[in-house]
């Protein structure tokens, strides 16, 4: 995509993209993590990025897929799959045929089971190493990629992996660029035939909209009812919050210090 910047041959990158689902309205969209993956690939120096999707082509999914094209792509390869199909064989075959150096995927799909297994199964089947939860690809040199993996609390871990490899990105990766209407409208969806395998198991599992999980009560293993009552009541009285007025700065600081320690944010 950016031929002026690559210095040691181009790097073939395939990004697996899926049709996302807006959490509030359920409308189809670019899946957030996949779009971040596309952004990550798009900013890689000397990368030749291909978009690959396995699924159905209908009105809803087309708009979402065109969303990826709007990030500045001419075409997207689409492996036609019926609803409820296991897309693993189709993707594995396509990747084997194309032989990219790096495959980028989101961690989990926003529709269907969304188990996040697909990249692992692909890696197992292709025999490639897999690194999950990427924040950035720092460098690719001589077939070895230096990656930055995102850890909780904004921490990062640096890894080095031999290519070809599969990497997944999560919400810590850079935010995707805006999808522009013009390129999205112009881009091609190259529909290709692919082997189809039904996902028999998934069809048997009843699915329903996620229930709100019960909030766990603070378990108090107190000796007496009085203590248990006190512990239960302590939560309720916390609603208003504690206000320290007419205290010296030192006393105020002490109270804050205590809270910070309790919460364990001071390192």
């Amino acid at each position: 995509m950016q031929p002026d910047t690559h210095h040691e041959g181009s790097l073939a990158v395939t990004v697996l993209v899926s049709v996302g689902r807006h959490p509030l309205t359920g409308r189809g969209r670019r899946a957030d993590q996949d779009a971040r993956g596309v952004e990550l690939a798009r900013t890689l120096r000397g990368a030749e990025v291909e978009l690959l999707h396995a699924g159905r082509l209908d009105e809803g999914s087309e708009a979402a897929l065109r969303g990826y094209l709007g990030m500045g792509f001419d075409a997207l390869s689409l492996l036609e799959q019926p609803a409820g199909a296991d897309v693993l064989p189709a993707l594995a075959e396509a990747l084997e045929a194309a032989g990219p150096q790096l495959v980028v995927a989101g961690e989990r799909a926003e529709q269907g089971e969304g188990s996040g297994l697909l990249p692992y199964l692909l890696a197992e089947r292709l025999g490639w190493p897999l690194v999950s939860g990427l924040a950035a690809v720092e460098d690719v040199e001589h077939g070895v990629a230096t990656l930055l993996q995102a850890l909780p609390r904004g921490q990062r871990r640096r890894l080095r992996v031999r290519l070809p490899a599969i990497v997944t990105v999560d919400a810590a990766a850079p935010a995707p660029r805006q999808s522009a209407y013009g390129p999205a409208r112009r881009g091609r969806l190259d529909v290709q035939a692919a082997p189809v395998m039904d996902d028999v198991d998934l069809a048997q599992w009843p699915a329903q909209p996620a229930r709100k999980r019960p909030k766990r009560l603070k378990i108090v293993k107190a000796a007496s009812a009085r203590d248990r009552f006190k512990a239960a009541a302590a939560k309720a009285e916390g609603g208003g919050g504690q206000v320290l007025s007419d205290v010296t700065p030192e006393e105020g600081a002490e109270a804050i210090f205590k809270l910070l320690k309790e919460e364990g944010v001071l390192r």
Partner: peptide, 27 residues
């Protein structure tokens, strides 16, 4: 916006919200 996809700052987010939720705040 339509060709470059370069609405600055919160612009892209607001437009995405409008597309997905029909209101700029994403509610």
């Amino acid at each position: 916006t339509l060709e470059h996809g370069n609405t600055p700052n919160k612009g892209a987010e607001v437009l995405d919200n409008l597309i997905a939720t029909d209101n700029p705040g994403g509610f």
